[in-house]
């Protein structure tokens, strides 16, 4: 637990060293939604679209994209925060110390994941407050508990992916490109910005992405007032993906970390 705590303390210190970055993640993911809102106004001429409702069950495209933006904060955290964590250590010149220390790598990763989780939640809540203030998004307290449960399921899968990527970063070093591509792929094939049902290919690929089930469930609760028990299918799918992604993440990380230590390429750039 000391390792986890120290990782957390280190992350807090780094975040506070770059306050502009902190402000950025609090505000900008919501700002990226604004073009979608203007686009909706231009194409539909109203705040609700019948064609959109036929696909999603709700014609209100503004809360649809805002929910996507807030939830995608966790995707960024998993991909860039955890996936790129060891690359950053490499830039700082601290990777060899970290890997060479007698601390368990699992706990180091846990520390990184926990730090990311805490900061992402802070960002997501701030964005939600902005959305409530700017766009009049309504959230009732009774809906928060099931949403928290869905989010925790989503986090497990996303952070599993992030841990796998962290291992890949150790091997190929400059993984920012791959992470960026994954970010684009997740944007394209999960219903963050638009209903994937609009195209058969995106609809099919989205079935393998945890964000799809989490977003369907969260939007179901918030926009369609669905009771939690009607979302069991999504929760089971999410749980199965959690198991798959966590297994993939830890297996990939352990295999690749062992490989780079054997080949002596940890310190390479």
């Amino acid at each position: 637990m000391i390792i986890v705590y120290e990782e957390l303390r280190k992350t807090v210190k780094i975040w506070l060293t770059y306050p502009l970055v902190l402000v950025f993640w609090t505000i900008f993911p919501i700002m990226w939604v604004i073009p979608f809102i203007f686009q909706g106004k231009a194409f539909v001429g109203a705040l609700s679209s019948q064609a959109f409702a036929d696909l999603t069950g709700t014609g209100q495209y503004i809360p649809f994209v805002i929910i996507g933006a807030v939830v995608s904060t966790y995707m960024f955290s998993a991909l860039y925060g955890i996936g790129n964590a060891f690359r950053e250590e490499s830039y700082w010149g601290t990777l060899e110390y970290l890997i060479g220390s007698p601390a368990s790598k699992g706990f180091i990763l846990l520390g990184k994941a926990l730090s990311e989780g805490i900061f992402s939640t802070f960002f997501a809540l701030s964005q939600l407050l902005f959305a409530i203030f700017l766009f009049g998004v309504k959230i009732t307290l009774t809906k928060i508990l099931p949403i928290l449960l869905i989010m925790s399921f989503l986090l497990l899968a996303l952070y599993g992916l992030g841990i796998g990527l962290a291992g890949l970063t150790l091997l190929i070093k400059e993984s920012r490109g791959i992470i960026h591509s994954l970010d684009d792929i997740l944007y394209l094939f999960s219903p963050i910005r638009y209903p994937v049902e609009v195209n058969p290919i995106t609809k099919f690929v989205s079935l393998f992405i945890p964000l799809t089930y989490a977003l369907i469930a969260i939007r179901g609760i918030l926009l369609l007032n669905k009771p939690f028990h009607l979302l069991i299918t999504e929760m089971v799918a999410l749980l199965l993906l959690d198991i798959g992604f966590l297994f993939f993440g830890f297996y990939t990380f352990n295999t690749l970390e062992r490989k780079v230590r054997q080949t002596g390429t940890i310190g390479h750039h």
Binding site: Q39, F43, A51, F52, T56, Y61, N199
Partner: peptide
């Protein structure tokens, strides 16, 4: 795709 979803 978002545009297509909006206008059908």
């Amino acid at each position: 795709l978002y545009g297509i979803a909006l206008v059908g």
